[in-house]
Nucleic acid binder design. Sequence first.
DNA 1: TCCACATTTCCAGAATAGTCGAAATGAAGG
DNA 2: CCTTCATTTCGACTATTCTGGAAATGTGGA
Lengths: 116, 116
Amino acid sequence: MTQIVDALAALAQETRLKVYRLLVEAGPEGLPAGEIADELELPGATLSFHLAHLARAGLLRGRQKGRYVIYSADFQNMNALVGYLTENCCGGRACAPANPRKGKDHETLSRTRRRA
Amino acid sequence: MTQIVDALAALAQETRLKVYRLLVEAGPEGLPAGEIADELELPGATLSFHLAHLARAGLLRGRQKGRYVIYSADFQNMNALVGYLTENCCGGRACAPANPRKGKDHETLSRTRRRA
DNA sequence: TCCACATTTCCAGAATAGTCGAAATGAAGG
DNA sequence: CCTTCATTTCGACTATTCTGGAAATGTGGA
């Protein structure tokens, strides 16, 4: 359970979630740290802190390539996380929706929009 | 995205995750606060703090029943959360596993199963 | 070797989160 | 009303997280 909590905590921060999403978009090839920093306009030290956090949680891996460090998402562990949530937190109800096709940016939580 | 981060943050804490799981187990009828406190051996003030946190994040609802307050999981929003993760954080790969049938307690994150 | 550059570590300050006893709130029932 | 009991709010403290400048580390190229 500690692993689950760590993974959730890693994603539970705006900057880190952005970093992670960027790397998901980038796919298995990943991105060098500097490019992430550029894209998200983050100071090196700050980015490094968050990358380390995500990596500790098992959601990211970094490999050295020349003088760059290339980070890429660990889809296995994200898979496991979603699996855990589905099995333990959804009470058996249908959890992952049909997911017809990746529709670019999705909009946040529930459609309990109109009131409730 | 703020909503997603809030929901993740709410679950990213051992005590709160336990509370939430307990309520998932309890199903839509939910549980009175006191019973949760008993079950998890938490001081009232501490539990109240965490329940409020989860409720603010939209993962819980509380309804008054006599002098009890009955809390229950909001499956819609958890659904939406899992949906978000599946669509935005899994790179299109299969994310929610087959989920053959709820197998009681599942065991944490990947063991880096030989590949995939 | 020496320099340029990418990234990380170190540090310290500001902000936020978690804990829980004690007091306050609010409902039920005499 | 007055008491009981479930729950929440208050308050105070400790611990952790986030941030980013400056220095350190490490790599490739001239």
